[in-house]
């Protein structure tokens, strides 16, 4: 199966990387969470190639899922990379989503107006 070929090494890596970690930022990350690199901060010397690429992608605002798609990595793995870079002050969460919080009525009305005017 093609997918097995392409993604063979991901399940192990992503579960090893995510297991047992308790980053506070991880709980607020969703696929639509907006991210942007902190202006002018170079990647930490210890950053992996993936983290450098991630910071490069985030020179403008993108959602976590977009970053994952451009990196060709699963969202669950990219969430871990993101949370590390947020903790070290290299990446900012532009849109903060509290766990289980729904958008406010005000935001939904903006969405509705925007859709009607597309």
């Amino acid at each position: 199966m093609r997918d097995d070929e392409e993604y063979r090494d991901h399940p192990v890596r992503s579960y090893v990387l995510t297991s047992g970690r308790a980053h506070p930022t991880r709980n607020t990350l969703r696929p639509e969470t907006l991210l942007v690199a902190v202006d002018g901060r170079p990647a930490p010397a210890t950053a992996s190639g993936q983290q450098r690429e991630l910071l490069r992608l985030c020179r403008g605002t993108l959602a976590l899922a977009e970053v994952a798609a451009y990196l060709g990595l699963p969202v669950s793995l990219v969430a871990v990379l993101v949370s590390d870079l947020v903790d070290t002050g290299h990446l900012t969460i532009r849109s903060n989503h509290q766990a289980h919080a729904l958008p406010s009525r005000d935001v939904l009305e903006k969405v509705l107006d925007g859709l009607r005017n597309l």
């Binding site: 907006l34 605002t61 849109s95 935001v107």
Partner: peptide
Amino acid sequence: QHLAPTVARSVK
């Protein structure tokens, strides 16, 4: 492909 810098909220 980046969002405009004014965008600070996402819904899905």
